[in-house]
């Protein structure tokens, strides 16, 4: 039973004390898909970064399987938590090929004297074929499109074989075809019981509706439960301060939400 617990978490944004992220108590179980939503600046990415260990500027505890993540080394943390950034974020890739980039996911496991082993290479090859990206595994990363790149970023995180996956708006800026492909990948990951925490702005996201939702507003948790309770109540308006129109599409038996421009 892998459980991620956030206890009395307080994170200072950008160094000043005026604005704080406050999470009193949240428990995320193994195999859960948690979507973090909220307005811009509500603390979504900050929370994700704290869990990923990218900021240590917090008080309180982030506990995974009874281990306080603040107290373990970076390479131990990388074996437990993998973080996938947004592909449009400005990251320099130098001349890494896709294979070399995914191989960096094995870094927490290497012996520094020996470097990467055959086992590491095998795991990378497996991951690459698992995500169906073999056809560009030898290409330079800088030549990939946003959609292709996003899959490579996920592949590297999967090669890390961590216990929790963190996705930071990974479907933003992707075209529809790549979004659908990404959904298929996420479906596979959910089926093999990965624990996933995903920041998203897409309220109509498929997995947002089937998993749990953590809604943040001005750094405070205002909702954390199954998505069905979220949509049944009027939480959506509370989160975004905007009225939403609800559509029901008969063919796929699914509800969709669109912001209402005039009635605010």
């Amino acid at each position: 039973m892998r459980t991620l617990q956030l206890k009395n978490l307080k994170i200072n944004f950008s160094g000043n004390n005026s604005f704080c992220l406050n999470i009193d108590d949240i428990t995320i179980d193994r195999g859960e898909f948690v979507s973090i939503i909220g307005q811009n600046g509500s603390g979504k990415s900050t929370l994700l970064k704290a869990i990923a260990g990218l900021t240590e500027n917090y008080s309180g505890e982030i506990i995974l399987n009874k281990i306080d993540l603040k107290k373990i080394s970076r390479s131990e943390l990388a074996k437990k938590i993998a973080y996938v950034p947004q592909s449009s974020r400005n990251i320099s890739f130098f001349n890494f090929t896709v294979f070399e980039y995914v191989l960096t996911g094995r870094f927490p496991y290497i012996n520094k004297l020996a470097g990467y082993t055959k086992k590491d290479n095998d795991i990378v090859r497996e991951t690459i074929s698992y995500l169906n990206i073999e056809k560009y595994s030898e290409r330079k990363i800088s030549t990939l499109s946003g959609g292709e790149l996003q899959k490579v970023l996920i592949a590297a995180a999967l090669a890390q074989q961590s216990e929790v996956l963190l996705f930071d708006e990974i479907s933003a800026f992707l075209d529809y075809r790549h979004k659908i492909e990404l959904d298929k990948i996420l479906q596979k990951l959910i089926e093999r019981d990965e624990t996933i925490i995903s920041v998203t702005h897409d309220i109509n996201d498929t997995f947002l509706k089937t998993g749990k939702i953590l809604a943040l507003k001005s750094g405070n948790k205002i909702f954390f439960d199954d998505a069905k309770f979220f949509f049944d109540s009027d939480e959506l308006k509370r989160v975004y301060d905007v009225k939403f129109l609800k559509f029901f599409v008969e063919e796929i038996k699914s509800e969709f939400y669109l912001p209402h421009k005039d009635e605010n």
Partner: peptide, 23 residues
């Protein structure tokens, strides 16, 4: 040379390097 793989990952970005376990 002992830190060669750390340095390789550092070329990507500080953020990526950290999430891969580079201090």
């Amino acid at each position: 040379y002992y830190y060669r793989e750390d340095l390789n990952i550092t070329m990507l970005s500080d953020e990526t390097a950290q999430t891969r376990g580079v201090n």
